[in-house]
Design a protein around this nucleic acid. Sequence first.
DNA 1: AGGATAGCCTGCGGGC
DNA 2: TGCCCGCAGGCTATCC
Length: 285
Amino acid sequence: MPELPEVERLRLSLLPHLLGARVERVAIYREDVCECVHGGEVVPTNAFALLEGAGIESLHRLGKHLAIASAGGPAIEVHLGMSGQVLVHEGPLPEPSEAKATHTHLAWTLRSGGATRTMIFRDPRRFGGVWGFASFDQLRERRWGGLGPDALEVTGEHLFEQTRGSARSIKAALLDQSLLAGVGNIYADESLFAVGVSPRRLCKRVSREQCERLAQAIRVILAAAIASGGSTLRDYVDADGKQGASQFAHKVYGRSGEACAACGGVLRTATIAQRTTVWCPTCQK
DNA sequence: AGGATAGCCTGCGGGC
DNA sequence: TGCCCGCAGGCTATCC
């Protein structure tokens, strides 16, 4: 379940394969995981909008969203959703039958120096997708305009200003990508545990000082997760197929019924903000 | 208008 | 052993 740290790890692992590479060909196996936009209009899915013929200049990330941009030309956004993966390998483009069997929806032939590689986007559950734009500016405006600041750089002041007086739970707010971009179910629970705030607590009952500590916990926990390779319970791998390791560092996520690392009490679980939530009723108020 | 809810989709694991 | 059902989850559309 990719969140910000997994997407950043993916970005870093893609850099050596993509920077300076030219896209020779794009194979589209499933059009309906793509959306292409040109001149503000949604246009039929096409290889050029998905970088065919372009030279790749930069990779960007905002929250859980990854962008691959050419110099002054097209740019694509990849969103991994629940089960999306981007992988680079040495082999040729997959045959349609193989693509179907592996839920591979798109593939790019990359030419870099003398080497030819294949990048694929696969996503069994298809909650993710790929968006093509005529420029990175258009991508940013159209796809990223509604997102809050990147969670790696969120401030307590921003959290407080955006949540003060709100009647929803702090957990719901942390999951709201328009408030801050990149926190999902795992790191929402981990961050709340780190600062001793119950996921059920209403935003209007979260103080400025608590927002300050929460913002710092979010930044520190996400940075640590990036440093340790991104978390994964099942689906996540980077561009080279390597799994992350930071699931071992989760203090509450996936540990319902286990002992709290801080007080030894039993971690409990409930559905909060439509998400399975785990917290320590003793440590988190 | 803010906040809650349904639905999308497949794979996996528990229970029988 | 094999089948069925429930759950996992980010995001959008829709409802209240």
